[in-house]
Design a protein around this nucleic acid. Structure first.
Length: 494
RNA sequence: GUCCCCUUCGUCUAGUGGCCCAGGACACUGGGUUUUCAUCCCAGCAACAGGGGUUCGACUCCCCUAGGGGACGCCA
């Protein structure tokens, strides 16, 4: 049987490095085995999914040259490749599951479930569905559905015994059924949850090997159950380790730039980034550090992947990227560099910012240094301008980051409105509020207009610079962070 | 809290019972090449979490402890 692998990102936000990491191994393995690599869009969360996000993910993966054999944009024999376009499949399978006794209809209200969860947590128990609707008769279920009562479909889970499955990287894993919740499979809006659509689609699409993040291990029993009810053949399972922050926690945007586009915009070469990702949990048999995608597919052995979560170390990525740059022939480097510099969507914006304050072209570079390159190291003195205390400045930098986090349309005017609003609710003069931001972002006290600069820099880079400014002031302790969290919540809710 | 996973230099890793008083790479330190810087070259620093077993022999196998991580949503 021909190998088929897949990556199934959900289009909720900016393309994530983790997606690239998982996609890389899936694609490399499929290619090595002469199989196919499939891209499926998991847009089952109707609230958070967006078309834009899907487009961004496809673009980001293409930039990395991680293209697919079947996918939403190019189709394929087992399509469609968006969850939202496969609803009839899930409905049919959910019904079949109910008929077979593998699932049941549940009418419990959100309030009842919240209360139940609170109570269980108070008792120190693992929050779990209590089986309230399990005993409903078929006729009652039908009656309530006919009456239009809101309902979901839940997975029926054995109440004793263990579930054992094999992860090909870790070996046999056993989880007690007691520990497994009666997961919602179909939401009240009729959309499937991940557990239903992933299992049904993986089967229907003929997926043979599942390579995904480690965070899925604990939901495997649910998937095993569904496969068993249908009598389907389970895939080979490989749970790749989670990429980590420096402090070993799961890589998160708060502590690290996690967006693929951030790395593209910083001028990393896609092949270098891919190479680096490939060294996370994997090593070439000859221990070489620099290797191409082709070499990876030749040598890849999934069972040699380390289960231990690797820290994403930008310094080593920088070194590797430097190696790739040095290896490029001059002519190609020139092409690549100018396409990086010139194709920047921001060029237009930068030019218009400069127009008013430039008399000669040779004045341009000194003004835009921090927009197109690294900013100067921050002088702590510059950051601390009267009348603000150090505590004020840290708070401003942190709250500015939080504000930007919430911006829906990344445009200077929106950014300005939001930041001014934050200044106001915190009771700072806009002038005072904005001063440390200039320094944090540009490394200088005088810079081009702030809101425009932020638009050009983008969220991730802005966040990274704000964070590094905070670090210069000694960082934020956990205790302090909690206090800021609280203050932020109070301010933004009123 | 419950369950699951993980544990070799600061970081990425090699190591599948003797080849290991543990090898490579990044970072760091020192030296050399270079008009400067970078590159490049050389050298140095630095780890088997702890405790019990099993074995003639354990980084490698088993158990316990500790630490880290993940999951516990009508998110994926």
């Amino acid at each position: 049987m021909s190998v088929r692998t897949r990556v199934a990102p959900s289009p909720t936000g900016t393309p994530h490095l983790g997606t690239a990491y998982i996609a890389l191994f899936n694609k490399a393995y499929a290619e090595q085995q002469g199989g196919d690599f499939i891209l499926r869009i998991e847009d089952s969360d109707t609230v958070r999914s967006s078309k834009q996000s899907e487009v961004d993910i496809l673009d980001a993966l293409k930039w990395l040259d991680l293209d697919w054999d079947e996918g939403p944009d190019i189709g394929g024999s087992r399509g469609p490749y968006r969850v939202s376009e496969r609803l009839t499949h899930y409905e049919a399978h959910a019904n079949e599951l109910i008929q077979a006794g593998g699932a049941f209809t549940c009418f419990c209200s959100q309030e009842r479930l919240d209360e139940l969860r609170r109570e269980q947590q108070r008792q120190g128990e693992t929050p779990k569905y209590d089986g309230h609707c399990l005993a409903l008769s078929e006729s009652e279920v039908q009656r309530r559905i006919d009456e239009g009562e809101s309902h979901v479909v839940r997975l029926r889970v054995p109440d004793s015994g263990d579930c054992t499955f094999t992860d090909r990287i870790r070996g046999e894993i056993t989880i007690p059924w007691q520990q497994v919740d009666m997961q919602v499979l179909v939401k009240s809006d009729g959309f499937p949850t991940y557990h239903l659509c992933a299992t049904v689609d993986d089967h229907l699409m003929g997926i043979t090997h599942i390579l995904r993040g480690e965070e899925w291990i604990s939901s495997c029993p649910k998937h095993v159950l569904i496969y068993d009810y249908f009598g389907w053949q389970f895939q080979e399972l490989f749970h790749l380790p989670l990429l980590r922050n420096k402090d070993q926690s799961k890589m998160s945007k708060r502590k690290n730039p996690t967006g693929i586009n951030y790395y593209r915009d910083r001028g990393y070469l896609p092949e270098a980034l891919l190479n680096y990702l490939a060294t996370m949990g994997w090593s070439m048999p000859d221990e070489s550090e620099q290797f191409s995608y082709a070499q990876l597919t030749e040598k890849l052995d999934l069972t040699r992947i380390s289960p231990r979560g690797p820290v994403f170390d930008v310094e080593k990525l920088d070194w590797l990227n430097g190696c790739y740059i040095r290896d490029l022939p001059d002519e190609e480097l020139r092409t690549r560099f100018s396409s990086w510099a010139g194709n920047s969507a921001n060029l237009e914006k930068i030019v218009s910012m400069l127009k008013e304050r430039t008399e000669r072209f040779d004045q341009v570079l000194t003004q835009v240094d921090y927009l197109i390159g690294e900013r100067k190291p921050i002088d702590k003195e510059d950051l601390m301008q009267p009348p603000l205390s150090e505590e004020d400045v840290v708070k401003i930098l942190d709250f500015a980051a939080r504000t930007l986090e919430c911006i829906t349309t990344w445009r200077s005017d929106e950014i300005g409105v939001a930041l001014r609003h934050t200044a106001e609710i915190c009771d700072y003069k806009v002038r005072d509020f904005v001063a440390p931001l200039f320094v944090a972002l540009s490394g200088r006290k005088v810079a081009l207009p702030l809101f425009d600069s932020i638009e050009v820099l983008g969220l991730e880079l802005t966040r990274a610079r704000l964070r590094s400014a905070i670090d210069i002031l000694g960082g934020i302790s956990n205790k302090k962070l909690k206090r800021l969290d609280k203050e932020w919540t109070t301010l933004t809710q009123s």
